[in-house]
């Protein structure tokens, strides 16, 4: 009887929410702005994706599925496959690199947590182009890596790392690693240490503690991190543009090429929508499948 019963006390007055069921007028300007700059353009793209290219670029309003048929051309399928493959690899590498540091930070005293998080964030807030350039500076044939390796006498002729899929993955991992670390940190931080200790106490090895307790309970963070890394990676433009070569084109480059070089807006739109639809579909399916299991730790 003495135990405070606040949660149900709250429910006692849960009916206080204003009865007005219409959105506030405060919402209107933002809705209009985003509607015009976000939703409408996407629908416009959808419409254009069923049209044809005019002779000098532009759009001829005919109803056709030709653009979507073109997407399954092996040439483009290969680009899609490469994009998904590189983005998946990037995501997995970010997970492997991000988990230890996220876990370490989450178990530090709160004051140190802030400092470490700041340390993780600072490079992230440096211009993406600058960070990409940094790796170009290091990896190119006359770059720092080769200079150092040659200086040490380890290699005779320069190693060609830049303009390859390896370079792209390095650039993407470097670019999006903090996207993985932050949600992972948040998830681990919410995971009570006592649960890990309880598992230990119940004879779990460290390996078992990790797989049976830590991973399941930090799944929301894992999922969030994976989504946050995968989406910009699969649609990346700068990294493959600057660090990849002609033979390592990704979807982002293809879209840019179709819009600005080939001036085939309808086909570019179709590619973009296929990309967006598959990403959203993948994310939604993933969240649905993982959803129920992902809940408990989010609340804890």
């Amino acid at each position: 009887m003495n135990s405070p019963t606040r949660p149900s006390d709250r429910s006692e007055c849960s009916g206080e929410a204003p009865a007005s069921r219409r959105p506030s007028r405060l919402l209107l300007p933002a809705l209009v702005w985003l509607g015009l700059c976000l939703v409408l353009p996407l629908f416009l793209m959808l419409a254009i994706s069923f049209a044809s290219r005019g002779t000098y670029g532009g759009v001829v309003w005919t109803l056709t599925l030709a653009n979507y048929a073109n997407v399954v051309d092996p040439l483009y399928v290969r680009i899609f496959a490469r994009s998904v493959g590189l983005a998946t690899l990037t995501t997995l590498l970010c997970l492997a690199l991000g988990f230890p540091i996220a876990y370490y930070i989450a178990r530090l005293p709160p004051r140190l947590q802030g400092i470490w998080l700041l340390l993780v964030m600072i490079p992230f807030w440096t211009n993406f182009l600058v960070r990409t350039y940094a790796w170009i500076f290091i990896l190119r044939a006359e770059g720092l890596l080769n200079t150092v390796l040659a200086g040490l006498g380890l290699i005779g002729s320069p190693v060609d790392v830049l303009y390859s899929e390896t370079a792209i993955v390095i650039g993407l991992v470097y670019g999006y690693l903090p996207f993985m670390i932050l949600p992972l940190y948040a998830a681990v931080e919410r995971l009570p240490v006592a649960l890990v200790e309880a598992a230990w106490d119940l004879y779990a090895s460290r390996w078992a503690v990790f797989w049976r307790v830590i991973v399941p309970l930090t799944k929301p963070g894992l999922v969030a991190g994976a989504i946050l890394v995968f989406i910009p990676s699969v649609g990346a433009f700068i990294t493959p543009d600057l660090m990849g070569g002609a033979r390592t084109m990704m979807i982002g480059n293809l879209i840019q090429h179709e819009f600005l070089v080939a001036r085939d807006w309808p086909f570019g739109s179709a590619i973009g929508l296929v990309l967006m639809a598959s990403v959203l579909l993948g994310v939604v399916t993933y969240l649905r499948a993982e959803g129920p299991g992902a809940r408990p730790a989010a609340g804890g």
Partner: peptide
């Protein structure tokens, strides 16, 4: 809908705005 820009590939936002 309001959080859409945070989850769609940025390049999509770029090209769709340009078309618009």
């Amino acid at each position: 809908a309001m959080l859409l820009p945070l989850v769609i590939p940025e390049i999509m936002m770029g090209v769709s705005l340009m078309l618009f």
